[in-house]
Design a protein around this nucleic acid. Structure first.
Lengths: 194, 194
DNA sequence: GTCTATACAAAGATAGAC
DNA sequence: GTCTATCTTTGTATAGAC
């Protein structure tokens, strides 16, 4: 049978996407993964904090790998490819899913050190996404200047997370499509050749 | 003494900003507002769902009123004014506060009809913000074409909410400043006169 | 390692005295 | 209307049999 521990992490990612860290419960994870109650503290002695942290790290790596497959070079091409690549994520947002990392930025107990560690994990993960994207915009031997690439990459991640929030609220893809159209038009005005 | 009911709503807004709907508890609201336990169901027979909904509506109106004071006309001016106006919100995000409406897009129970109503409230509130902003970009007798103004306005709200998420995670204003610089530069390229 | 059973705390929701 | 006290449920966490 597939690794129980791994299945629990996958179930946690799904629970985070739908309910957030405070709204998620072990009951959800156990039902979705088929694991027994005692399995949690066997595999994750650190309890909920450890489980959520490992889920965030895995999800962060999955997204990072996906971003690394984007084309590099012309900003207009990179922006268009990025928007197409993230569209499926926003579709999930319209039905209550979406980005698991956005979910862990809202913690139940702001004082706790577990939750501080979680916030720092989220910060590192977003930064790593932006860095990957900046590399596509400023590849070795061409593309944008590093500072400009970094700014634009962070802006694209910002648009992704903002669209996640708005599409969740709207229940439709419309906010994302409006932002995508605008991003395309503004990028063309700034970086278009004609 | 100031209206107990009103103080409870204000306390709920603060609790939502910091902990989200699932992470927020009546205990927080009661301590912050000074109200007694039984006061909740006296003033809000609908329980948590009603309390949170009223808090969201009030917060949405406050933000809408603030957006209505922005200048109208030149897109470059409107964008710059918008970014300056929301900067204090993002500062709050860096220390765990920020947008209360973003918080209510993550609900504990996706099935419940209370939570569906809450999602629809969030959708209406975001739409109303974008509409106000679009009016500033396409005032009667000038400005952008309506469709373009609507797209750009939604994009600005998207940037605001995305920056909220990223600044919360980063603990610094850097993601917002990067996105703001990019928004200014791209807007200048698209709408600059020279 | 996997499972059942349970302890303990905190949440939302009510009842009823004043 | 305001407050105290309490019910019920749910959640995290643990113990211990197999």
């Amino acid at each position: 049978m597939a690794d129980t521990r791994s299945r629990m992490i996958d179930a946690t990612i799904r629970a985070l996407q739908r309910r957030g860290v405070a709204g998620m419960s072990f009951t959800d994870v156990l039902r979705d993964s088929g694991a027994a109650r005692g399995a949690i503290y066997h595999h994750f002695p650190g309890g909920k904090a450890q489980l959520v942290t490992e889920a965030a790290v895995r999800n962060g790596e999955d997204v990072r790998a996906a971003l690394a497959t984007l084309p590099a070079g012309d900003p207009q091409v990179v922006v268009a490819a990025f928007l197409d690549a993230v569209r499926p994520v926003l579709v999930a947002s319209t039905t209550g899913g979406g980005c698991a990392i956005a979910a862990i930025t809202v913690r139940a107990d702001e004082q706790g050190r577990d939750d501080l560690a979680l916030q720092e994990s989220a910060g590192r993960i977003f930064s790593s996404w932006a860095r990957i994207l900046a590399d596509r915009l400023a590849p070795a031997g061409g593309g944008l200047p590093p500072d400009e690439a970094s700014d634009l990459a962070t802006t694209l991640i910002t648009l992704l997370e903002g669209a996640h929030v708005l599409c969740r609220a709207a229940g439709t893809l419309e906010p994302f499509e409006k932002a995508a159209r605008t991003a395309i038009a503004l990028t063309a005005a700034r970086y278009g050749t004609r």
